[in-house]
Amino acid sequence: MKVLEFEDVSYSLGGHKILERASFSIRKGDFVGMIGPNGAGKTTIVRLALGIIKQDSGRIALFGKSASEFAEWGKIGYVPQKAGFDQDFPASVFEVASMGRSAKMGLLQRFSEKDRKVVEEALGMAGVLHLSKRKIGSLSPGQQQRVLIARALACEPEFLVLDEPTVGVDAKAQHEFYSLLEALNCEGMTILLVSHDVGAVSRKANKIACVNASVKMHDAKEGIEEALACAYGEDFRRIPHHHD
């Protein structure tokens, strides 16, 4: 089953073409890493997929339904780039994670005991349950990012979309974060991860989507060199190194 499908999608902003006839699909259970240079259109693809902006032409479908008709937003969890909110906002970690539940709840529905348990489980999976009562702005960038992941998990999504979620997060937290994504994918969750971290993407994802105005899909295990050349051009250089 196709969870997300782009068919000849074009999008331009202020006369500048950002996406041109982009076509690709993500199937249930896929872990897709999306890479590409700055301005290639990665975030635009995420925003189009989530219905935040509308394409100029082409077709976008979510879970087999046209994006304009799609209404089951509770099936999708979204983790934005960090610092999208006011650091002085008076919201506790629990309240922020609970926001993710809003997508599952009707407008007038009350927050039930079951909702509370799901939010606590999501906080536990993201490793921040012990911080529930803290003010969100008082946490480190890495901890904040985990709370945003808990918020996305709180709607019990089938499809998790993450837009450069590890910017500003330290190496240890990044490692734990990618392990969490791997575990979620093993449990059957479909994942789209937009990232500049080519190394992590090639290790964890099973498909790589290269974005450079259009989109090309590659197998993560066999096509990494081809994928990098496609995204960053033939002149890119890899510097092999490892950390202890």
Partner: peptide, 10 residues
């Protein structure tokens, strides 16, 4: 708190 994420949640 986060208008864009709220919009993305429908």
């Amino acid at each position: 708190f986060d208008e864009e994420s709220a919009r993305a949640s429908g």
